[in-house]
Each structure stands twice: as structure tokens, then as C-alpha cells.
Simulated scan of single mutants.
Amino acid sequence: MKKLLLIRHAKAEKETAGKDIDRPLKYIGMQDAAFMADRIKDEHIVPQTIITSPALRTKTTAEIFTDHLKLANPTSNKAIYEASQQTWLKIINQLPAEYDFIGIVGHNPGVSQILYYLTGEAREVHTSTTALIEFETDEWAAISRDTGKLTYYSSPKE
């Protein structure tokens, strides 16, 4: 069985003088990310590894999660930044086979789109939301439309 934890980055600054990819988290975003990391730890939902978009806000969110969950530093995948649904599926299908449970920190609308594509469940994915999807397969490459079951969904707003 493969498990995927989708994590939307925490609340970021709206406008900065630099590029979108360099937007930092707001203080409340850092608090929300820590809160959600602790929540999933309490629920025993701890991935083996976390992969993140290279954007500052996703990297910081991923670092907060790995710190709270006592995981190795997150790895970065540039394809996650501004990924379409098709790109998300390609990323998931190519995840490392040695892991059965991976967390991915990404952006909307991609997180919402791939959640719906994989599970058929339309959810509003606020910042810092976590969604656990379980698949009845041992191969990441076998994952496609409606092959996943949403088994956990939570956000700081709940």
C-alpha cells in the first residue's frame, strides 16, 4: 500500500519586492505549519520523507514539518512549483519506490486539483491543510484517476 500526504504550504506574505518564488511565510503561517505538524504527529500520520517545491514558502513549511516530525531534511523538486494536474500525476508516478509513505508540500490550485483527481473528493484546501490519500497498490506508477481514498483531512481552520 502506498500513502501520500498532500500538504499545502502555510500562509505566506501576499506581496514582496521580489519574485513570487521568494515569498516568505507570515508569522501566523509558521505557527499554523507547526500546529499541523504536531497534529498529524499526534494522529500517527508521519511520512518517511517529505518532498517540496523550491519556493521559499513551501521549503519553510516543509522544514517546519520535518523538524516537528523528526525527519531528514526535505528534498526539493522544481516541477512541483506551479505544477498542473498532469505534472502532479507525473511527479507522483515517479516517486522513489523505496518509500511507501511520502509527504509533498505544494501550492494551490495544484494540491486541490490532484486531491480531486486521485480521490474524487472536492475539498477546499486552505493554507497548511494536510490530506492523506491511501492507494491499494505497491507501485507509485500505478496511481491514476480515482485510485486513492482520502483517509484523513485537516486544516488549522478546523
Rank of each mutant, 00 (worst) to 15 (best):
M1L: 11
M1W: 03
K2I: 11
K2L: 10
K11P: 00
A12F: 00
K14Y: 14
K14Q: 15
E15I: 11
E15N: 11
T16D: 08
A17W: 10
K19W: 10
D20I: 06
I21P: 00
L25A: 04
I40F: 05
E43H: 10
I45C: 08
I45N: 03
Q48G: 12
T49V: 13
T58F: 02
A62M: 01
A62Q: 03
E63W: 01
I64H: 00
L71I: 09
P74S: 09
A79G: 08
S84Q: 02
T87L: 06
T87H: 05
W88Q: 05
L89P: 01
L89M: 08
I92D: 06
D100W: 02
F101N: 00
G106L: 04
P109T: 09
Q113N: 13
Q113F: 12
I114A: 01
I114N: 02
L118Y: 00
G120E: 07
G120Q: 07
A122R: 13
A122E: 15
T127L: 04
T127M: 06
T130E: 06
I133H: 03
E134D: 09
T137P: 06
T137E: 07
D138I: 10
E139N: 14
S144V: 07
S144N: 15
S144D: 13
D146Y: 13
L150V: 06
T151D: 07
Y152W: 12
Y153R: 02
S154Q: 15
E158C: 13
